[in-house]
């Protein structure tokens, strides 16, 4: 099977670039530092084999997982936001568009290349993250689920970056907008839910109900668009009591019987993948020079 030519070309170029090596080194340095502090810091002081310290490796796993997510969230918009606009700025896009590669193939090639970066990060981080497996509490399947959700988050954030790159001609503006949109999906969705809840409480109080409870109905599902919420929900299921996400949602109404909230990370991942498909399709349409305006 032949690779997508754009993906193949990007991989060749990335492999020769020192930037990727430095990114992988930096990420693993952060993860290594977390592991060292956890095991040789806290462990040596308190004795990590003591029974009351059993949560220490779990905390270490959580910290490393969040660090990985943070790195993906910070790096991917920066990489993908330049994928199309840089081709435009370097005057290589026109030539690319006159080949047999359709805009869809160019976009997917670019996305695959940025996902390979997520894969590289996730795989290179495996040895550090797998340290916690020595102590139990986190299994191999948990690690696979973590990598899978990281990749899905990478696809979502990456497609967002590519959309900005296709939409804005200048890389600096595209990068800025990619981060702004990511902040909207992470903090904005949470803020909208909280504001809606607060308004609901005020409305209840105006109607003479002072129990401080709110019910924002279906608006809570806006959190399904939040890549951090899906990641939090997965980790809650792996190393928490599995109810943390439900408890958060219940603060905005009663969702105890909601199938979606009870399987939050799965639904969030699915919706984010669907949304990514939409972003990619839109990017492809924007890139098509013969589209009707």
């Amino acid at each position: 099977m032949n690779l997508n030519p754009v993906f193949d070309k990007e991989i060749k170029r990335n492999c020769r670039s020192m930037k990727i090596s430095w990114i992988v080194f930096g990420c693993n340095l952060v993860l290594g530092t977390i592991a060292v502090i956890s095991f040789f810091g806290e462990g040596v002081i308190h004795g990590y084999m003591q029974t009351d310290r059993y949560r220490m490796p779990i905390r270490c796993y959580m910290m490393m997982s969040y660090a990985l997510f943070l790195m993906v969230a910070l790096l991917i918009p920066g990489i993908t936001a330049g994928s199309i606009s840089l081709e435009r700025e370097k005057q290589t896009l026109d030539v690319l568009l006159t080949t047999n590669l359709n805009p869809w193939k160019i976009i997917t090639g670019k996305l695959e290349a940025s996902l390979s970066m997520v894969f590289l990060l996730a795989v290179s981080a495996m040895p550090a993250v797998a340290l916690v497996m020595v102590f139990g509490g986190v299994g191999f399947l948990d690690l696979i689920a973590l990598v899978a959700l990281l990749v899905i988050s990478g696809i979502f954030i990456g497609s967002l970056g590519i959309l900005c790159s296709a939409l804005f001609k200048r890389t600096t503006l595209a990068t800025l907008m990619a981060y702004v949109l990511l902040i909207f999906f992470v903090a904005g969705t949470a803020a909208i839910v909280m504001i809606a809840s607060h308004i609901n409480v005020l409305q209840n109080e105006a109607a003479g109900l002072y129990d401080g409870r709110s019910d924002i109905g279906g608006l809570v599902y806006l959190l399904l668009l939040n890549p951090f919420a899906s990641f939090f929900s997965l980790l809650s299921g792996q190393v928490g009591n599995g109810r943390e996400m439900l408890d958060i949602c219940n603060a905005f109404g009663d969702y105890s019987q909601s199938f979606v909230v009870n399987h939050f990370s799965v639904f969030a991942a699915g919706i984010q993948l669907i949304l990514s498909g939409g972003f990619i399709a839109l990017s492809g349409a924007l890139l098509n020079p013969l589209r009707k305006k």
Binding site: P5, D8, R13, S17, Q91, T92, N100
Partner: peptide, 19 residues
């Protein structure tokens, strides 16, 4: 027109051949 960095002449043409 521009060219890609970190790509050899042969790879550049092979990329467009694949395209």
């Amino acid at each position: 027109f521009g060219v890609y960095d970190n790509l050899k002449v042969s790879e550049y043409l092979e990329f467009f051949a694949a395209a």
